[in-house]
Simulated assay, not measured.
Amino acid sequence: MWSEMTGKRPANPLALAVLGLLLEQPMHPHAMATALRERQLDQAFKVTTGSLYDTVRALARDGWIEATDTEQVGGRPARTVYRHTSEGKRQFTDWLDELIREPSQEYPRFLSAVSYLGALGRQRAAQALRERAAALEARIAAGEKAYREATERHGAPRLFVIEAEYARAMADAELRWVRQTAEEIERGTLEWPEVSPDA
């Protein structure tokens, strides 16, 4: 059962990213940060130097990972390399299995804001959606570039960057919805409340 280690799973979602990276190979936190940025996982997880090191320390303290070696390059300080403990790896894969199998209710800010789109008025709502569409297009393009670099330039297997495919599919779906809704507002085919400022 779960109580074999700390009795609870890590509270910080960044722990998932750290544990996932360590499935590939042992590494030090600096290398983890570089990999997260290269794969654009810093968009899925809040990554700062402090939060990353805190997460690594907590995982080591709770028995999920362990220090295995140190690396030193030039005159830089030695960096501690970490790997999964056998129990930490088993618990991580159990946790991951549950996260993939069981959809959970999430509360994205955009969904909350869309609930009150009518408060902006037609023109402002359409403009806001068009601006979001442009930002999504830029994000998709940047994601595609990072994906190509990871797979073509660095030779990362597709399975190691498959989250980028999922993120692309979600961004594409959102972009289609945002554009369609903006078009409906602009054509006047989306019914608007009487209380809207510019109704």
Rank of each mutant, 00 (worst) to 15 (best):
G20E: 12
K89G: 15
G88V: 10
I185A: 11
A135H: 07
M170R: 14
S115H: 10
A173R: 13
V56W: 00
G121L: 08
D62T: 11
P26G: 00
L14F: 04
A156E: 14
A182P: 01
E71R: 06
D69V: 03
R148N: 05
L190A: 07
E184I: 03
F92R: 09
G50S: 11
R79I: 08
S104D: 12
A135P: 00
T68I: 07
F160P: 00
T68N: 01
R109Y: 12
G188R: 12
M32K: 00
R158M: 02
A167P: 00
Q43N: 10
A199C: 05
Q105E: 14
E106A: 11
E98F: 13
E191F: 01
P157S: 13
D172C: 10
I162R: 08
D69M: 05
E194W: 09
T48G: 11
R124P: 04
R39N: 02
S51D: 05
F160Q: 11
D172M: 14
R153G: 13
L111M: 13
T55C: 09
Y147G: 06
W192G: 02
N12K: 01
E152K: 10
L16C: 07
L96R: 15
W64F: 15
I140W: 01
V47N: 02
L16Y: 09
W2T: 12
T80K: 14
G20H: 13
G155I: 02
A199M: 06
R37Q: 04
A125V: 12
T70Q: 14
F45V: 02
L52R: 04
K8I: 03
G188K: 10
T70S: 07
L99A: 10
H154N: 09
Q127W: 05
A142Q: 15
G20D: 12
L23M: 14
L16P: 11
R130K: 07
T80R: 15
T70K: 13
K8L: 04
S196M: 03
E66N: 06
L99H: 04
R101D: 12
D69F: 06
T48F: 00
T80D: 09
T189E: 07
W2E: 14
T181F: 00
Q43G: 03
Q123T: 15
Q180F: 13
L52K: 00
E191P: 05
A119G: 13
I100V: 15
A126G: 02
A138K: 15
R130A: 01
